[in-house]
Amino acid sequence: VMRKRAKYQKLRAKLQAKGTKSAKRRLKKLSGRENRWITDVNHRLSKTLVQKFGSNTLFVLEDLTGVSFERTDLPKALRNQNKSWAFYQLAQFLTYKAHLNNSEVIEVSAQYTSQRCPKCGTIKKSHRNHDLHEYHCSNCGYRSNDDRLGAMNIQLLGTQYISGQEQPKF
């Protein structure tokens, strides 16, 4: 996905630099093609998830509303990668396909999911090292990949939801 996005971005930059009428027509055609492609990817991904896990499954997603993926500290070539994925569209596709399969999708707060120790419950921003993608709890000594840690905390929020808590959060 990232390679194809980068290819489209490079082609768009080249056509925008030209600025001719035909380049603008080509840009419009190109944007439609890219949008259809990412829609197809999202459809296939949501379909695969629902088929793999079957009926009566709870899918727990982070609510990314208001979360900014803007990174001005990155080189210009890498800035667009984080913000160009259609998360909202994927969540919508997954929701309607899960409902057709007697499954449920909930969105939980993204707050502290990458800062909370799953072993002792300590929440501390400094425990996470963004550069190494590592989390290390100074309280209990737990150490893990920060993405894995986030997934474990999201799973815990899903468990809280199943236990009866309407809007689980840390």
Rank of each mutant, 00 (worst) to 15 (best):
Q51I: 04
K52I: 00
K52S: 08
K52P: 00
K52A: 06
F53D: 07
G54R: 09
G54Q: 07
G54F: 04
S55E: 14
N56Y: 13
N56K: 15
T57S: 07
T57R: 05
T57L: 03
T57P: 10
L58A: 01
L58E: 08
L58H: 05
L58W: 01
F59M: 02
V60K: 07
L61C: 06
L61H: 01
D63S: 12
D63Q: 05
T65P: 09
T65D: 09
T65R: 12
G66D: 11
G66C: 11
V67K: 15
V67C: 08
S68L: 05
S68M: 09
S68W: 03
E70I: 06
R71E: 06
R71P: 07
T72C: 00
D73G: 04
D73H: 12
L74I: 00
P75D: 01
P75H: 08
K76H: 02
K76N: 01
A77V: 03
A77M: 01
A77T: 04
A77N: 05
L78G: 00
L78E: 05
R79T: 00
Q81H: 13
Q81G: 06
N82M: 08
N82Q: 12
S84A: 13
S84V: 09
S84W: 11
W85I: 10
W85F: 14
W85P: 09
W85N: 12
A86S: 15
A86V: 07
A86D: 15
F87W: 10
F87I: 05
F87L: 11
F87R: 13
F87M: 08
Y88P: 11
Q89W: 10
Q89I: 09
L90T: 04
L90S: 06
L90G: 06
A91K: 11
A91D: 12
Q92N: 12
Q92E: 15
F93D: 12
L94A: 04
T95Q: 07
T95E: 12
T95D: 12
T95Y: 02
Y96C: 04
Y96L: 15
Y96Q: 10
K97H: 02
A98F: 01
A98V: 01
L100V: 11
N101C: 00
N101P: 03
N102R: 12
S103W: 09
S103V: 05
E104W: 07
V105D: 10
I106E: 00
E107T: 14
E107A: 14
